[in-house]
Amino acid sequence: MSKRHQYVDLLASLPALPVTPFGREPLPISAIRLEHRLVTLSDAHRDTLEALESLLDWRHLGLELSTEAYIRCYRQAAPQLAEHGVLELVEALLEQRSLMTALRRRRRGDPAPSLGETWGFGPRLAHISAHWQAPLFGVGPVFPWLAEAREHLEHDRPRKLEGLLLEEGWRRLDRARRHDRFDFREVVIYWLRWRLLAAWRRYNAEAAERRLQADIEQGLGDYETLFSGDGN
C-alpha cells in the first residue's frame, strides 16, 4: 500500500469531527477510544506523535520551562517531524503563540526584544521586533486574526481571546486537510483538531464549574459561614 493510503482503514474508523469547535455536543470519540484506534500506527509514526505531544502539551513541558529550553526541545524534535511531513503544522501553531507573546509583552510595557534574544518562533521575529510599536507589528495583513486578538487582550476578554485563537487554529487545520489522502499527516491533523475540540470542551466545563461555585457563594451570602461549620 502506498504512503498516500497507509492509514485508510484508521482514518475511515474515526468519526467525523464537527464543522465548528464551539458546539455543545459531546466529543465524537473519547480519548481512550482514540488512543486505542491509534495503536495501528507504525512505530516510527507512534514516536513522532509522542514527540509532537510532548512539544505541545504543557503537562509534559511544565509551566516553569524557559523559552530557550522549549526551543531546544523543538529543535530536537524538528527533524523527526519534518521527515514525516508534519513540521509545518506545528510551526504555524508556534508562530501563533509567538505573536500572542509579543502582544502580551508589549502590553506589559516591555521593550522590543533585542536582535539576539530568543523569544519565539517563525520567520518574522526580526520584523516584529523592528515594528514593535506598530499596532499589529507590521504583520496584520499576514495574520488577519491579530487585530481582533489585540482588541480582546486590550479589553481583558480572555474567554473571547481563547475562542478566537482556537477558531483560527481550527480553520488552519481544516485548510491543511487533503481529502484524497489517508496518510500520517491526515492522522496528525485529525489528532490536532480533536485536541482543540477537547480543550474547548474542557475549558467550558471548568468555566461552568467556576460560575456555579461563584453563584453558590453569592446565593449563600451570610449563611456561608453557617454551612462551613465556623458559625456559632
Binding site: 500500500m1 485508510v8 482503514d9 475511515a12 474508523s13 474515526l14 484506534r37
Partner: peptide
C-alpha cells in the same frame, strides 16, 4: 484501498 476504508467504517 476501498476495502480497507470499508473495514475502518465498519468500526464506526
Amino acid at each position: 484501498i476501498a476495502g480497507q476504508a470499508a473495514i475502518g467504517a465498519l468500526l464506526e
